[in-house]
Simulated assay, not measured.
Amino acid sequence: MKIDAIGKVIHGATISRIESKSGEEFYTYPVFTMQELSRETGQYGIKEEFQEVNIIKEKFDKSFLSEINMVVIGLTSYKALVIGDQNKGKLITSNFAIIEFNKNIIDPFYFSWYFNEHPKIEKQLRVAMQGSIIRALSIQMLRELDITVPSLEKQEKIGRLYYLRKRKEKLLFEKKSLEELFYKQLIVDKLKEDSKCQ
């Protein structure tokens, strides 16, 4: 089944078209960045970068704000992410595609697993990008990608498994980072003790 048949695929907001100029009334919103996508999809050590933008009030469209369980895809990283609590309410820019799914047909976590992990998608992306100088997916390319859609029950099981696996990976990374800090401090403290004894 083509992605276009199971959800609406749109481009994120082009900031230059909606950013406020001097004297215009605006709303301020945090921006969802490529760094956040990378950090959430496996590069857990990437430093957090906070960005925000002032948007002209009359040009503001709430459909560009991230919502829980919304799926976003990085057009240059080819990674899909289901938006969680920590990224809710952020502006999705033109570096991303937003997919609004029919929840009765597709589970967002299943889709995220399929897009990120399945060899069928990897093969389709390779074919779609052949001969392309700019290594970015177009919205049209995304709409045309084929995805296998089993029963919703099976999707939910696969999606849950994928969510738990990614969560475990992230927690293990955080544990390892904390252990490294702990042992580093332990060694520094030991050196201080030894220097006091001399």
Rank of each mutant, 00 (worst) to 15 (best):
L91P: 03
I92M: 07
S94K: 07
S94E: 11
N95C: 02
N95P: 03
N95L: 09
N95M: 06
F96V: 01
A97G: 06
A97H: 00
I98Y: 03
I99S: 01
E100Y: 08
F101W: 00
F101N: 05
K103V: 01
K103A: 03
N104I: 05
I105W: 05
I105N: 02
I106A: 05
D107K: 08
D107I: 00
D107P: 05
P108Y: 09
P108T: 02
Y110G: 02
Y110S: 09
Y110T: 01
F111S: 06
Y114I: 07
Y114F: 14
F115S: 02
N116F: 03
N116I: 01
E117H: 01
H118Q: 00
H118M: 04
P119W: 03
K120S: 11
I121C: 02
E122A: 13
E122H: 10
K123F: 14
R126G: 09
R126S: 14
V127P: 01
V127Y: 15
M129L: 15
M129S: 11
M129R: 08
Q130V: 10
G131F: 11
G131P: 05
I134Q: 15
R135V: 10
S138M: 04
S138A: 01
I139D: 06
I139Q: 13
M141V: 12
M141R: 13
L142N: 02
L142K: 02
L142R: 08
R143N: 14
L145Y: 03
D146K: 11
D146Y: 13
D146L: 10
